[in-house]
């Protein structure tokens, strides 16, 4: 059942991206180009999304579980660390270079846009690279934590 609703959510999300114009990289560039002729559309997309989702999350928080009886997996991280800052800055540079972020990249693949496919493949490559680096550094970090713990 949750598989079906995942598909529906992805579909509605995709329709939203298409209607909003955010699947057009040229339009995203128009928003990011504040020194040129500025197209504020993307700000209104975010405003619309946040308007609905903030009400939605407000009510979701009052529930002990989802409508399908699944746990509500709200992120719990609070700290603003180096990873968040560096990662977001890097993401912004890539976003600025192509005018494409992960959601629209997948819609472009579905629309059969070759350049979208190339971007999506490179994006997947970047994510795989991240996983490889992460799994390599997990072990030393874990052992350092265990050797430190007796001192505490």
């Amino acid at each position: 059942m949750n598989i079906f609703f995942s598909l529906i959510a992805g579909l509605v999300f995709g329709f939203g991206l298409i209607i909003s114009g955010m699947t057009n990289p040229a339009k995203v560039h128009g928003f990011l180009d504040v020194a040129g002729a500025w197209d504020p559309s993307l700000a209104l997309v975010m405003l619309g999304g946040i308007l609905v989702a903030s009400i939605g999350f407000f009510f979701a928080r009052k529930q002990s579980q989802s409508w399908l009886g699944l746990p509500l997996q709200m992120p719990s991280a609070r700290n603003i660390d180096r990873r968040l800052v560096l990662g977001s800055l890097l993401f912004g540079i890539g976003w600025g270079l192509a005018g494409i972020c992960p959601g629209p990249a997948l819609v472009l693949v579905g629309a059969g846009v070759v350049k979208g496919g190339i971007f999506a493949l490179a994006m997947l490559g970047g994510m795989v690279l991240f996983e490889l680096v992460e799994s390599n550094r997990k072990l030393p970090v874990a052992s350092a934590a265990t050797t430190n713990s007796p001192a505490k």
Binding site: L86, S88, I100, F119
Partner: peptide
């Protein structure tokens, strides 16, 4: 761009 978006979104 794709590589940066992939690495950046996962790291951030």
């Amino acid at each position: 761009a794709g590589l940066l978006v992939g690495i950046g979104t996962r790291y951030g």
